[in-house]
Amino acid sequence: MLRQLLESLSGHWAVHLESRVPRTELYEARIASSKPTLGFFVLLISSAVIATLGLVSNSTAVVIGAMIVAPLMDPILSLAFGLAVSDGKLIRRSAVTIGFGVMAVVATAALISWGLGISYVQSEITGRTSPNLIDLGIAIAAAVAGSFSMTRKQLSNSIAGVAIAVALVPPL
């Protein structure tokens, strides 16, 4: 009965499975994303400048924008992929890229804060350092959505939404 109702409303009702990204193409993309490049560091440092100034000016929208600009999602996904497929070289390269990226961001933020003489903590900063279980749930759901959309050709445009959802989660 339900099937007849659905068919009368939509014509032919069937489950449509998106085509998967070929395994070799996915693997090559994760390897490429695990390597630090000039573009990676330009975007990362630009993002650090935007985020630091957004935190200083107490602007949530600017901080979220900075998190979307930051290219750290790619090496993090490469690290997770390396862990999933037990590729030690990919794991090490991704971890080193993430480590260098974090150091670059912290150094950039420290230089800007020192240069501006910032000695106070805004509410935006404290709000970003106190995650709760809801934030963990958002992070897990975003990880599932991001990972799944990376493996499906038609869903790759969902990555922007995943980035926005993750940007709303306190990073610390």
Results as ranks from 00 to 15, higher is better:
5 L>T: 13
7 E>K: 07
7 E>L: 03
8 S>K: 11
8 S>C: 01
8 S>F: 07
8 S>Y: 10
9 L>K: 15
9 L>F: 13
11 G>P: 10
11 G>N: 09
11 G>L: 08
11 G>I: 09
12 H>L: 05
12 H>W: 03
13 W>Q: 08
13 W>D: 10
13 W>N: 06
14 A>L: 08
14 A>W: 00
15 V>T: 11
15 V>Y: 09
15 V>Q: 07
16 H>W: 08
16 H>C: 05
17 L>R: 14
17 L>S: 11
17 L>P: 02
18 E>Q: 09
18 E>Y: 04
19 S>T: 12
19 S>C: 00
21 V>G: 09
21 V>C: 09
22 P>I: 05
23 R>P: 06
23 R>E: 15
26 L>H: 15
27 Y>G: 00
28 E>G: 02
28 E>V: 11
28 E>D: 15
29 A>V: 07
29 A>L: 09
29 A>G: 02
29 A>M: 10
30 R>S: 05
30 R>H: 09
31 I>A: 09
31 I>M: 04
32 A>L: 13
32 A>I: 05
32 A>C: 02
32 A>R: 15
33 S>E: 11
33 S>N: 12
33 S>R: 06
34 S>D: 07
34 S>E: 05
35 K>Y: 07
35 K>D: 08
36 P>R: 00
36 P>M: 11
37 T>A: 04
37 T>Y: 00
38 L>G: 10
39 G>I: 00
40 F>Y: 14
40 F>G: 06
40 F>H: 06
40 F>E: 05
41 F>N: 07
41 F>E: 03
41 F>W: 07
42 V>E: 01
42 V>Q: 03
43 L>G: 14
43 L>Y: 06
44 L>Y: 03
44 L>H: 04
45 I>K: 05
45 I>G: 01
45 I>Y: 11
46 S>P: 03
46 S>M: 08
46 S>C: 11
47 S>A: 12
47 S>F: 02
47 S>L: 00
48 A>L: 04
49 V>K: 02
49 V>E: 03
50 I>L: 14
51 A>W: 01
51 A>Y: 04
51 A>N: 02
